[in-house]
Design a protein around this nucleic acid. Structure first.
Lengths: 207, 207
DNA sequence: TAGATTGTTAATCGATTAACAATC
DNA sequence: TAGATTGTTAATCGATTAACAATC
């Protein structure tokens, strides 16, 4: 009966989309928008946007619309991204290194503070927070620093074992790039990024 | 009234998931499975799997289940991934290079045959198909080779312009890594991969 | 055969949309 | 004020699930 837990996951999933669209409007110099305009930009109905937002409060003004700054601040608070999150990257192959270097994370409040691998030829390469660490130190590292978010860029075969160790160390959110379904406790969240699945979804529609 | 166009997109989106799960079962040495087992592995109801498959035909046997090889072949045919697709990567930064080198694509029927950038210091680096080409040659390249799929790993500011050029050259499916909503004609498909959006969706659930 | 599992129908569930009073 | 847009209700739409006859 707690009101928070009743909000459909599909609604939560759209909030980051709204945030991104608002960002784009701000960068175009706008300060006010409407559910209609936002919907146009995203290919979503204005009614759906108003309905989604109404789960959390009243953020607009009749006749006027939404103050973009205000709405963004509210969405960030709801999603808990009005702060900086520390993350670790596991796997220092091409993908792991690209993730570690990707500037888009820190811009939007996510900082990579550790990179791990089990390959001795990789350990010690890089500099600063991105110097590759021994995977044997990973569990202690996330526990001591209370890190809650990890990105997995390792081969499928070892993904589950690494996942288990991360969860044991206190990690509660995993962004998984391995093409494998992970099994985790109920209070741990996993999101999957598998580019091949996106490609396969599109080839269906090609002649 | 064409039966193909009536299949919900949400169903198409689950087929690659089924394919991936079947792959995993094969690698464990299994040759037969059931909707129940598949559902267990994916966290989906067995009824949904049977319903989804029934849009395309009858692939199982009462009392027995599904011959994995047969079902995989059927799914690949439906998704049109029973062939090799050529793709281009646009953007040769960290992400673009990681995509170009990623072995998971060719393993699953997608081959990167061209990488493009506008930075003179990058053009000419790399070797073979992965030698970075001048972006000015991109439009001709995709047209001449009839390439239908592109992956976009460029800054948001230039993403739309590059997208337009790709579409003009005949590209019909775009996997977009830029955190920007692209506008494309109706017969062009876009899938978005924005890791930050996945992260933001998970932070909502963290304490 | 007895047990198991499919494909499909009908019922349920939940999400989206249309419409509008409230009001800026 | 007149016009515009919100937040919300009720209606519609579509997706998921339960159940079961068919049958391997």
């Amino acid at each position: 009966m707690t009101s928070v837990s009743e909000i459909p996951d599909i609604v939560i999933g759209r909030l980051p989309l709204y945030l991104r669209a608002l960002n784009q409007l701000v960068s175009q110099g706008q300060t006010i928008t409407s559910s209609h305009e936002l919907g146009q930009q995203l290919g979503i109905s204005s009614a759906q946007i108003r309905k989604d937002l109404s789960h959390f409060g009243e953020f607009g003004k009749q006749g006027t619309g939404y103050q973009i700054n205000h709405l963004m601040a509210q969405l960030k608070q709801i999603l808990q991204v009005n702060r900086e999150w520390s993350m670790v990257v596991v796997g220092a192959g091409d993908l792991g290194r690209a993730l570690a270097h990707y500037g888009g994370f820190v811009e939007r409040g996510f900082r990579v503070v550790g990179v791990f691998d089990n390959d001795p030829s990789k350990i010690g390469t890089g500099s600063g927070d991105l110097k590759v660490r021994n995977i044997n130190d990973m569990n202690d590292f996330v526990r001591e620093r209370a890190i809650k978010i990890a990105m997995l860029a390792v081969p499928g075969k070892v993904a589950q074992a690494i996942c288990d160790s991360l969860v044991d160390g206190g990690v509660r959110a995993i962004l998984n790039y391995a093409p494998i379904t992970l099994s985790v406790p109920e209070n741990v969240h996993v999101q999957y990024i598998d580019p091949v699945m996106h490609l396969q979804r599109m080839t269906y529609y090609l002649d």
